[in-house]
Nucleic acid binder design. Structure first.
Length: 454
RNA sequence: GUGGAUAUAGCUCAGUUGGCAGAGCGCGAGGUUGUGGUCCUCGAUGUCGCGGGUUCGAGUCCCGUUAUCCACCCCA
């Protein structure tokens, strides 16, 4: 015990129940992506270190797991997928039909301090819409994201989507009196103002050297974030110049153009939303727990310059990522993880006869699938078959094992029936039983399993 | 990186002023010569996270260390 190795800090072991949950989530990601016409891709788990240094931002770079190979090349485990995607598109995009609609389910790595919802190794669903500069692409990303959340049983009461637009926001801020050279500081401050109390806010604003009128304006933003469309607010009262009014109007128009109808109630312009990734160019969004209890569920935005930065043709792109860790916590908290994920076998063989070989014979017959070479497809799938590895012929005990394995049917091989050339076929859910003539048993069993929703 | 809490069986945990290492669940074998998650009996598994100190004696007190959880920073 004391000498056992433990998994590295911030990693997980997936025993069968945990693996079943992971598969449940990944399958849904894949299913929804494909339904919207996205195709799955993947890339290497590690990349040149410089790929992330160029444009991901200091925060990401400080969390990289990096190493040097024997040829002296600096490499890093991928902390996110977007740079890999942009690299691939920069290299191969020219020959691909546009738009490119891709999704990926990569494992990613960040060397940060593990905590609730944040680990050092996680799985992140990525959906990217590349080569389309109109809002159609942004909207479709929002719709895919929402469709998945609904698919898992979440409702508009469970999550909110906050959005912002960096360029329009900059325009608005300048029009409202922020000095252009203070824009970066302003974004930095806006991102955290709402989480601070008035005294802390004051300190932060003074530390960043804002003028009195700038401080007053930012204080307003701090109090009034996530402005609902249409409502008259203190911010609207500040729109005294035509340019300010225009900038604000553009923002509101964008809101109306972006919002998917099914999300009207929980789609909000959030002046405090900036997002740390340095490659985002305009529209950005983040999906949050409506109860405010968890970390961001998903986040994304436009990165129109990243592909050309990696040497590709100028290509507009928008996408988002969703991590498995927070999502699983959220689904668990809301009671939305089904029980018995993974399911049990179709047939559990209970062999109470003296012939131990019978178990293997029946198992191999039922497991067999039929491959048709002319259509290059499996035309009849093999059944999922299990049996006991214990010596006992106690039918009660063996049925108990069948039940705890979540089997749907039990095939009972016992001396009395075998001497009459029949087997017993028990429906473990209905607790009903019939006899099948051995000669037709395989056919009857296959159709029974198929009927039961196989 | 910084702070707080925690660490005892596979899991969840109890363990009194320092005095023989415990329960429940799970796991294994059996109880009825052939029918279910129940019941009964029996069984295995521990250097009490690791290292040091105090003491006649440490799971218990002290110091260090590692890991986990929570929070900060930031975000999937």
């Amino acid at each position: 015990m004391t000498d056992l190795f433990q998994g590295p800090k911030g990693t997980r072991d997936f025993l069968p129940p945990a693996m079943a949950v992971r598969r449940y989530i990944e399958d849904a990601w894949r299913r929804v992506s494909i339904r919207f016409g996205f195709q799955e891709v993947d890339g290497p788990t590690f990349e040149p270190l410089d790929l992330y240094k160029v444009k991901s931002g200091d925060e990401i770079v400080s969390q990289l797991f990096s190493f040097t190979d024997r040829g002296g090349r600096d490499l890093a485990l991928r902390p996110e997928f977007t740079p890999t995607l942009a690299r691939i598109v920069a290299q191969f995009g020219a020959g691909l039909p546009k738009p490119i609609k891709w999704f990926a389910i990569p494992r990613c790595y960040r060397a940060e301090q593990p905590q609730k919802g944040r680990l050092r190794e996680f799985i992140q669903w990525n959906v990217d819409f590349i080569g389309e500069e109109t809002l159609t692409a942004d909207k479709e990303c929002l719709s895919v994201c929402a469709a998945f959340l609904f698919e898992m049983g979440l409702t508009t009461a469970d999550f909110v989507i906050a959005w912002n637009h960096r360029d329009l926001m900059a325009e608005l801020l300048v029009a409202l009196g922020i000095r252009p050279e203070k824009l970066n500081d302003t974004f930095y401050v806006l991102d955290r103002l709402q989480k601070l109390n008035p005294v802390e806010r004051q300190k932060l604003l003074q530390a960043r050297d804002f003028s009195v009128s700038e401080q007053e304006l930012l204080e307003l933003f701090a109090v009034e974030t996530a402005v609902p469309a249409g409502g008259r607010t203190a911010l609207q009262d500040r729109l005294q110049t035509p340019t300010a009014r225009t900038a604000y109007e553009k923002m509101m128009q964008l809101h109306d153009q972006l919002v998917p109808p099914e999300l009207a109630d929980n789609f909000r312009w959030d002046v405090g939303l900036v997002r740390g990734l340095a490659y985002y160019t305009g529209f950005v969004f983040e999906v949050a727990d409506a109860r405010g209890e968890n970390r961001a569920i998903a986040g994304g935005g436009r990165y129109d310059k990243l592909i050309e930065l990696f040497g590709g043709k100028p290509t507009p792109a928008v996408g988002f990522g969703m991590g498995d860790v927070v999502l699983e916590i959220l689904l668990r908290e809301r009671g939305l993880l089904p029980e018995h994920l993974g399911g049990g076998p179709d047939v559990f063989i209970v062999n109470a006869s003296d012939d131990a070989d019978l178990t293997a014979q029946w198992a191999s017959r039922l497991r067999r699938s039929t491959f048709d070479p002319t259509v290059r497809k499996i035309t009849q799938g093999g059944l999922r078959v299990q049996h006991s590895y214990r010596a006992t012929k106690n039918i009660g005990k063996l049925l108990q094992e069948a039940a705890s394995a979540q089997a749907r049917f039990a095939l009972i091989l016992a001396p009395d029936e075998l001497s009459r050339s029949v087997v017993k076929w028990r429906d473990l859910h209905a607790r009903s039983e019939t006899e099948l003539p051995i000669a037709q048993a395989e056919t009857l069993i296959r159709s029974a399993c198929l009927e039961k929703g196989g």
